[in-house]
Every structure is written in structure tokens, then in C-alpha cells.
Amino acid sequence: MSEPDFTSDEMMTIAASRALKNSDVCFVGIGAPSAACNVARLTHAPDVTLIYESGTIGTAPQVLPLSIGDGELCDTAVTTVSVPEMFRYWLQGGRVTVGFLGAAQIDRFGNINTTVIGDYDTPKTRLPGGGGAPEIASSCGEIFITLKQSKRAMVDKIDFFTSFGHGEGGDHRQRLGISTKGPTLMVTDLAVWKPDPVTREFTVVSLHPGVTREMVQDNCGWTVRFAEDLAQTSRPSGVELTTLRDLNARTKAAHSGGKTGEAA
């Protein structure tokens, strides 16, 4: 048998899913993080607690939600709390170990912009805004980020600091009185990145199979640093691929039909 073929998107989601532990309590961002978190739950981390900001705690959806508040999330949750309670007791209260975020625009220190492209008052593109992200970024124990690489998304200087990563690098978080770790992992469609222990600049620690250093640099707007002991990301296993593809197929069927996808 030859190794299974997979896309770079699938590699990204699966590599991101591996970062979650069974004991984690994870605040899930919509989009790519949601797929990664549910693949983790359906493979190596069956007891992971997934929280969506709509108030659903310990949810186990059969299909990926289109919004962060699809009924599927509430139906399968351990409990559903109000939004003020979610942000006050659970997030601000320090009970979330990992915040899993996507990004429209990101810099080398993991600062994220989802607010505007261009000037705030006269934007070229008005993006949705921060939602829960500003406080997710400062209140969760640590932050994982997942996004597809492009020069448009990974920029030298972001247009707006929607949520704070490592700021200018170094001990900038501590200087602002933030006690949580901030971004500790970034998974793209090409590589796995971790912050340098001193400068906090994201550094490539592992290339996905078939990816070269040049490909990573060609799809990134800053000069990329690579770890000395650069590794290769393990290929998706058969179970990981099947789990992700089944999840995507169920999701596509449910959303196109206007159903929430309850099991028959």
C-alpha cells in the first residue's frame, strides 16, 4: 500500500488537531480551528472540552457548525450558559487552557488583525471585528493559531491590533500586565511554527511533507526564521484523514440542505 494522498489544507487541520490534549479546555474559533478541534476530539482527545463563545460548554457536534451558535452545539453540550457568564466566569475566570484562533492578518509575533485593512476610520476593507478574540488572547492559558499561508495574510506590519500576541516581542506581554503565555503555536498549510524562547518571533520548527523552505518564504510577508533542528511533520494517518473527510462530508450535506444534521 502506498501512503495516502492528502491536500495541504488537510495537513494543516490534522497537524493543528494534534496540538490539543485530552485534558484541554479549549475555546474554539470558527472556521479552520473548529475543524481541527473536532478532529482532535474524534481521534486522540475524546475527552477534550470544546467551548464555543455562544455559551456551549463541552460540545460534541456531529457536523461542523456554520456559525458559533448552531443548534447542534447546544444539543450536544454538557451545559449551555449565557454569553455574559461565558465571558465572565469561564473565560475571564481562567478556566480555559487553550484558545484556538484563526487570523485574517498576522505578524511574526502572533499579533492578529480581524478589524480593518487600511486605516480604521477610512478602511479599504471593513472586516468583522474582534468578537471574543481580544479577551481570548489575554485570558486563555495559551493560544494556538491556524491559517493558510499567503503574503496578504502574513505581513510585516498588521493594519490593526485586534488581539495582542507578543506585541513587539520579548517580554512585552508581561510589561502590559498579561500573565498568560499568549501564542505558543502556529500551524499553517505549509509548516508548524513556535515562538523563539527569547525574542518570541514565530520560527518554523517543522515542514509539512513535500514542503521546502522556499515555499514557506514565498508565502510569507516577513523574512522567515527556521529552527536549527528543523523537523518534518508526520504525514496524516489513515484514521486522521478518514475522520476529517467524513466530518467535512457530513458538514457539507447538512449545510447545503438547510438541516442542522441531527442523526437520523
Partner: peptide, 9 residues
């Protein structure tokens, strides 16, 4: 509340 730390809003 404890928030907006480092956030440009």
C-alpha cells in the same frame, strides 16, 4: 472587566 489588554480598539 479584565480586558482590552494590548488591543487597539
Amino acid at each position: 472587566f479584565r480586558g482590552y489588554k494590548g488591543a487597539e480598539l
